[in-house]
């Protein structure tokens, strides 16, 4: 019922959102035409959108998207699997949790991308470095949210399980984990966003791989319209991924 009324409301905000962006771009276009903005620094928005065809035809934008996508997928799977497993282990062993939780929290807040030279040395200038970087950046939030989710399971739910004499593993699979899933998923979403940001950042920094490298290339060629177009493209892809994750999250927590 709630979702229905939200859906009814979501069309006008969407229009207003697109309208605002369109208006701002139009304004930039006019200011460039009038010479109020430097056209050597800011490209024409129309030229930015015009360069998409060229990007797909000559710069293999789609192939690069697939490449970055494959790296992102690998990093995501690693982040989700290791993050949740580590979170569960820390939940089970209190002493480990007490010893490591502050450090994990510190890592979650640190700009891990600065550690890229280390990964470069270990894995070389390869996709492995990029995946490892994304993995390192996305891990901490998943671990923390998994812990938070498991710790936050209501005592009455656990008592229900205990009153039916559930074994430890039944208690975990039937009660603790499903009860924690919504919180864990928030962590996974955060982790994936972190991983994606760092992934593209490292591609840019080490000039290797998909979309990040393309942005770097175009910047060095001083092809500003195409560079901005690629950035817009990355933003759009992120929006789509984010929306897909939200949809998945709703699927994980039905009617809540």
């Amino acid at each position: 019922m709630k979702a229905g009324s939200m859906k009814g409301l979501s069309v006008p905000p969407l229009l207003i959102g697109f309208g605002t962006v369109g208006l701002a771009l139009g304004l930039v276009e006019i200011m460039l035409m009038l010479g109020l903005l430097n056209r050597f620094v800011v490209p024409f928005p129309s030229a930015v959108f015009g360069s998409f065809g060229r990007l797909f035809a000559e710069e293999e934008l789609f192939e690069r998207l697939l490449q970055t996508g494959a790296e992102a997928l690998a990093a995501s799977v690693l982040v989700a699997v290791f993050g949740i497993v580590i979170g569960v282990v820390l939940y089970r062993f209190r002493i480990l949790r007490l010893a490591t939780e502050p450090w994990v929290a510190a890592v979650a807040a640190a700009p891990i991308v600065l550690a890229y030279p280390l990964f470069l040395v270990i894995f070389g200038r390869s996709a492995a470095t990029i995946v490892a970087m994304g993995f390192a950046a996305g891990l901490a939030p998943v671990v923390l949210k998994t812990l938070e989710g498991l710790n936050g399971v209501r005592k009455s739910l656990i008592d229900v399980g205990r009153s039916y004499n559930l074994s430890q593993s039944q208690l975990f699979w039937k009660i603790l984990l499903p009860a924690a899933v919504p919180t864990i998923f928030v962590g996974v979403r955060l982790g994936l966003v972190f991983a994606l940001i760092n992934l593209i950042g490292v591609e840019f920094l080490i000039n290797f791989g998909g979309l990040g490298q393309l942005i770097n290339d175009l910047a060095e060629r001083y092809d500003l319209p195409a560079m901005f177009a690629t950035i817009v493209f990355v933003v759009l892809v992120s929006v789509v991924i984010f929306a897909a994750l939200e949809r998945m999250e709703r699927w994980f927590r039905p009617a809540r």
Partner: peptide
């Protein structure tokens, strides 16, 4: 096994 418990707090499984 022959004792069933109903708890004071919310105890249904939301999922």
């Amino acid at each position: 096994p022959s004792v069933g418990m109903v708890f004071q707090e919310e105890s249904t499984f939301p999922w």
